[in-house]
Nucleic acid binder design. Structure first.
Length: 284
DNA sequence: AGAATAACCTGCGTGC
DNA sequence: TGCACGCAGGTTATTC
């Protein structure tokens, strides 16, 4: 389920429910995720001296689509892949299919479910700040869309000489991270930029507009999810995406919300893209 | 090197 | 009803 807004909501939910609380157990039912879940994870999180320094969840951070759970002995890295969800349940709730991992906090627990198993649970023996900077999976990530380094200037500079489409450019994660397939379409619609435009052909003005629409689109999605926060995702069975907000994604043939022209779709690198041919002209 | 493709998995909807 | 097929929110690894 997760693009950046969904991961952000999950992180906030985890922090609200468990920050400051002591981990009391780990149950791993299936270690076969994107990479193997480390063996002896409970011992790793407890560290050398759990008697004196109990495994209290000290902080929760998000980096791109990764969640970082900070414990005294190190950092638990979580990624939800394509289909991962996290729920907040009473300890002892019987596990269902694809409930791979439980982190117990006394009478409550957080439970990771991931049917496709593209997600990841990894351990880093460094603190959160160091892990963010140095962990191989995190070190090379692009700018945080809400960070101070991200903006039109960065997009302009990073796009020079790039032959890829602008959609792939923002989806790739090397420049800005957290924009997934759904929000890539939404951001480009909002910026009025055709998804097949070459990244190198963007003007400074367009880069500025694109950066702003990325921030605004993600902010809106987080607000939408934050208002319906329940068990970390909106667990009402709609899949957890903030679909009421989608202006073009999944709306092929339906009226563009701005000009009523039918929304079109195309495939780029095997993934679907949606856009309005009138609001997003191929020639700028 | 940048760019395209394959790979990892299960589940769901569609059409025959 | 059953089955084959295509498609799905991500990312890394491999190839050209």
């Amino acid at each position: 389920m997760p693009e950046l807004p969904e991961v952000e909501i999950v992180g906030r939910g985890v922090a609200a429910a468990f920050a400051g609380r002591c981990l009391t157990g780990v149950v791993c039912r299936c270690a076969k995720l994107r990479w193997p879940v480390p063996q002896g994870l409970w011992q790793k999180i407890c560290g050398q001296d759990a008697e004196r320094v109990p495994p209290v969840l000290r902080q929760v951070q998000r980096r791109g689509k990764y969640l970082l759970l900070g414990f005294p002995a190190g950092t638990l890295i979580l990624h939800l892949g394509m289909s991962g969800t996290v729920r907040h349940l009473p300890a002892g709730t019987p596990p269902g299919r694809h409930d791979h991992l439980d982190l117990l906090f006394g009478e409550r627990m957080m439970r990771l479910n991931d049917p496709r198993r593209f997600g990841a649970v990894l351990w880093s023996a460094e603190d959160v700040a160091t892990t963010r900077q140095a962990h191989p999976l995190l070190a090379g990530l692009g700018a945080e869309p809400f960070g101070e380094h991200f903006g039109g200037a960065l997009l302009l500079q990073a796009s020079r000489g790039r032959k890829v489409s602008v959609k792939q450019f923002i989806l790739g994660g090397q420049v800005v991270n957290g924009v997934g397939n759904i929000y890539a379409s939404e951001c480009l619609f909002r910026a009025g930029i055709h998804p097949e435009r070459q990244a190198a052909g963007l003007t400074a003005t367009e880069c500025e507009r694109l950066a702003e629409s990325i921030r605004q689109t993600l902010t809106d999605a987080i607000s939408a999810g934050g208002s319906s926060l329940k068990d970390f995702v909106n667990s009402e069975g709609d899949g957890g995406y903030f679909q009421l907000q989608h202006r073009v994604y999944g709306r092929k043939g339906l009226a563009c919300p701005v000009c009523a022209t039918p929304v079109q779709s195309l495939r780029q690198q095997g993934r679907s893209t949606f856009f309005c041919p009138a609001c997003q002209p191929l020639i700028s």
